Simulated assay, not measured.
Amino acid sequence: MIIFNYLLVCTIFGTTFLAIKIGVDASAPPFFSAGIRFFIAGLLLFVWSVWRKKAAFALLLRKEMLLTGIGLTFGTFSALYFAEQYVSSGIAAVLSATGPLIILILQSVVLRQQSTVTSAIGCIIGFAGVILLLLPTLTVAAGGWQVVGSIAILIGELFYASGALYSKKVIQRYPQSSPIALNATQMMYGGLLLLLLSAFTEHVQMTSLLSTSALGSLLYLIVIGSMIGHSLFYWLISKTNPVFPSTWLYVSPLIALVIGVLFYRETVTWVMALGAATIIAGTILANLDSLKQLVRKPRATVSSAAKGSFSLHKR
């Protein structure tokens, strides 16, 4: 059951990138679609948490939830939804896997935390992979917007990394609240900010959201991506350890690449495939020391580590 649910989580998170792409290609306004997705998913999860007495409505009034929502949802997904107008879903997934690398860089440069030689080498390899991944887009006529979209995703991952680091303080500040409730609250704030951005930048026509592709994409992302996927993720943490479920970060981008090619006729050159493999390898190498440490921790630490995992929500 554990292996089945793990593969299901990897598949769900891997397919969300294609679901976003389908919705955007169906002319659904990207910021509005993202806002609706996260606000509704967050609202449903929050109400469920309150009903189960795992959260209180006072959580909605905390400024920390707003700040976390800016990093983990608003900044990350405004960039991703914008970028998928110009970048394939598979490439978007691989570039999104740079989040852990950027977290390590922020820890070293901003927080002055020492990193190991292995982590530093992993970061270098990971960003070499980014260059390889983007190289083919520089040789085609439409490459300009593809590069802009790719850079936007990397900026979004900078927001994600900042939000992930900040969320650790938030978790320590509210130990009585469940991680699902904290995640739901920040999703609601992030969704509202996305809707506000949409109001100023997009002309929303409801007819564009009622097509089969746009509506199906939105429902899939709300129910499967943002609710079922996250719930299974937390279930895996409770049944195993914090590290095992988090390895979806290394599996899902490859699933996204394959699904995009097989079901959406996206093209991947051998240079791009090499870049994708290099990014994943660099990410694993950069996090190798942390992964080894967590694996060695006894099962008794699972509960506390689970409380630190709501920043890992994607995608």
Rank of each mutant, 00 (worst) to 15 (best):
L18C: 05
G260C: 12
L221S: 07
T278A: 09
L132K: 07
A164D: 05
A214F: 00
Y174M: 11
R315D: 12
A286R: 02
I237R: 01
S311C: 11
R299W: 10
A199C: 14
L165P: 05
H313L: 15
R173E: 14
I91Y: 08
S311I: 03
T212C: 12
L44C: 14
F38V: 06
A305N: 13
L194R: 00
H230S: 09
Y160M: 10
C10K: 02
G260P: 09
L135F: 11
F200W: 13
W248M: 11
F77S: 01
S208L: 13
P179Y: 09
L219V: 15
A83K: 01
V94F: 03
I20G: 01
S208F: 08
G225C: 12
L274I: 14
F233M: 14
I237A: 04
G122I: 11
G163Q: 03
S96Q: 05
L104H: 04
S167N: 10
V9C: 08
L285H: 03
I131H: 08
K292R: 15
L80R: 01
W48T: 10
Y264S: 14
P29E: 11
S162P: 00
L60A: 13
T185D: 04
S162H: 01
S49Q: 09
I124M: 12
S27W: 02
R299Y: 12
V140G: 04
F32G: 02
S198H: 03
K297R: 14
V24Y: 02
R37S: 07
G35T: 05
L111N: 12
W235L: 14
F17C: 05
V251P: 04
Y250W: 10
G129P: 00
A161T: 02
F46H: 06
L312A: 09
V243K: 01
L288F: 14
S211I: 06
A97M: 05
K63W: 12
L312Q: 07
L218S: 06
